[in-house]
Design a protein around this nucleic acid. Structure first.
Length: 511
RNA sequence: GCCGCGUUGGUCAAGGGGUUAAGACGCAUCCCUUUCACGGAUGAUUCACGGGUUCGAAUCCCGUACGCGGUACCA
């Protein structure tokens, strides 16, 4: 019988959720959904010293914003709880001890100082980082080198100890990665990783394996940085639960910084002025804020879409996908093997596309929040929608709905006078007075009629209509740019349009 | 150093023995618009290098270079 698909996203709560993390979560989610499986959030907080308050909630909220709500999580619970490794501490010791009994692991009593002295004494130019491995382990203080009673005594005396895996010598391990195919490792080249730390907490290596087993994880997907330690996990599965029960592995490529090389990091956010977290993350210790896509005006649909195709495509020319479509079309074997540089310009393009794509209800809700935040008075929903219709195609980021749309709610406070002053004449002023007067005769107040009467009047006064358009624009909105002038005037309404024209006309009297 | 993973325009990428080597972002020019955008058209910039295998290599093989990741009682 087929094993039920269960996929976990297992971040450590040491800060915000960067792009690589969200993408891993996304791919995990997509795979789970397309196989009708479960998507699980498991918090890997076994390193208490690096634990950052609030980070766990932040991760959960970020996932929710992205539309990737887990089925099981510390917040929601589930049949395999608890979902925080720190609360599962009691699970791990027995497995580590079992490995010691079978000779596949051993107790080690070396102090940090002793470890450091081993490393420094073995350090050479050709071996800058000596490992605790088959070559050095017999020179250290552990249950392999100590007499049995001595080990027993040390253990019962309460002296701190760790349990390390005993890597076999010269064995070739094959990992079948869903993205990379077969990857070979020689066990002699992998060190005797600590499995259980002196504080009784497991390291990641023991914890993933035990938890993946206990939580019946069927597919284990994570970032490429984990590939080098995969042989340890493989061996642990073989020793503890049987290799045949091991989840299928896939290691996703890294997301690289936009300039230069290397993994995208939170420092790049400030340096380049770009968001790299899903949502703003405020570090509770330093108080510094790493900016997020949400606060920069991204739609979650766009953010997720952009991330999905950064390192994956379905082989067609399609680039725009709703999450439901991604569930349908995503396939792990089409995920790229190479890391991808993050490109903020392209990210903005995705957002622009999604601003056009989402339903008006959703957009108007988001835009209303922005306007209310800026304390703009919205007369009614219909007016709001008319404004959105007019400027929607011009916006890349949500805050632009404010910069481009505020003129519909608030008269300009200053005008770009330089744009019209030089070519201004008394005749032009006269034209605008007449134009306002003509408003009363316009049968139906709309952009088309406004334009027709504007042009007719201009022609009758022997002024080129083109020369009058820029002044009209400045009168209405203060700036040279924006949607078509007559559309603006139409939407503003007769009274407001006339008022704005008069205001500037009063100003021109001083020229 | 050692181990692992990579390498198609500036960026994301399709293509997996025969292609004029797709497409998108960005850039440039032009058109549309008497604004700015949007849109449309056109263009510049590519298979890391060296050897093989083959009638034929971006594609297969071997080297090399370069980049990244790992080499913690961090995840």
């Amino acid at each position: 019988m087929e094993k039920k698909v269960r996929v976990r996203f297992a971040p450590s709560p040491t800060g915000g959720l960067h792009l690589g993390g969200v993408r891993t979560a996304l791919y995990n989610y997509l795979f789970a959904r397309q196989h009708n499986g479960d998507f699980i959030l498991r918090i890997e907080d076994t390193d208490q010293s690096r634990f950052v308050a609030g980070a766990e909630e932040y991760i959960y909220e970020s996932l929710k914003w992205c539309g990737l709500e887990p089925d099981e999580s510390p917040q929601k619970g589930g049949p395999c709880g608890p979902y925080r490794q720190s609360e599962r501490k009691k699970n791990y010791l027995k497995y580590a001890e079992k490995l010691v009994e079978t000779g596949q692991a051993y107790y080690a009593f070396d102090t940090p100082e002793e470890l450091e002295s081993m490393r420094s004494s073995h350090r050479t130019a050709s071996n800058p980082s000596p490992q605790y491995d088959h070559q050095t382990r017999m020179h250290m203080r552990n249950s392999l080198t100590l007499a049995q009673d001595e080990t027993k005594n040390l253990l019962s005396s309460g002296i701190p100890f760790v349990i390390r895996i005993r890597m076999p010598e010269n064995e070739t391990l094959h990992l079948n990665d869903m993205i990379r195919g077969r990857v070979d490792f020689n066990t002699s080249l992998v060190d005797d990783k600590v499995l259980l730390k002196a504080d009784g907490m497991p390291t990641y290596h023991l914890a993933v394996v035990v938890d993946d087993f206990l939580m019946e994880i069927s597919h284990a997907f994570r970032g490429e940085e984990w590939l080098p330690s995969a042989p340890v996990h493989l061996l642990l599965w073989r020793y503890l639960f049987g290799e045949e029960n091991m989840p299928a592995w896939a290691h996703f490529p890294l997301i690289l910084k936009p300039d230069g090389n290397g993994k995208l990091s939170k420092r790049d956010s400030d340096r380049l002025g770009i968001p790299i977290y899903a949502m703003d993350w405020k570090d509770p210790i330093t108080g510094s804020v790493i900016s997020g896509f949400r606060e920069n005006g991204f739609l979650p649909e766009a953010f997720v879409n952009m991330l999905a195709v950064l390192g994956w495509n379905d082989g067609t020319e399609q680039e725009l996908y709703a999450i439901s479509e991604l569930i349908e079309k995503f396939s792990i074997d089409r995920v790229h093997r190479a890391g991808a540089k993050f490109n903020y310009e392209k990210a903005k393009w995705f957002n622009q596309e999604w601003i056009r794509k989402i339903p008006m209800d959703e957009l108007s809700h988001a835009v209303r929040k922005i306007y209310e935040h800026h304390q703009l008075h919205i007369p009614d929903e219909n007016y709001l929608r008319e404004v959105i219709l007019l400027i929607r195609e011009r916006c890349h980021l949500l805050p632009e709905f404010y910069t481009q749309g505020k003129l519909f709610f608030k008269a300009p406070e200053k005008w770009d006078l330089d744009a019209i002053k030089a070519k201004w004449t008394k005749e032009k002023a006269g034209f605008f007075y007449d134009y306002i007067a003509s408003f009363e005769k316009i049968a139906e107040w709309n952009a088309y009629n406004l334009e027709i009467s504007f042009k007719e009047l201009a022609t009758s006064q022997q002024i080129k209509p083109g020369e009058l358009q820029l002044p009209l624009r400045i009168m209405l909105v203060g700036e040279k740019s924006g949607p078509p002038v007559f559309d603006i005037a139409a939407l503003l309404g007769k009274k407001e349009a006339a008022l704005r024209i008069k205001n500037l006309l009063a100003e021109t009297g001083n020229w």
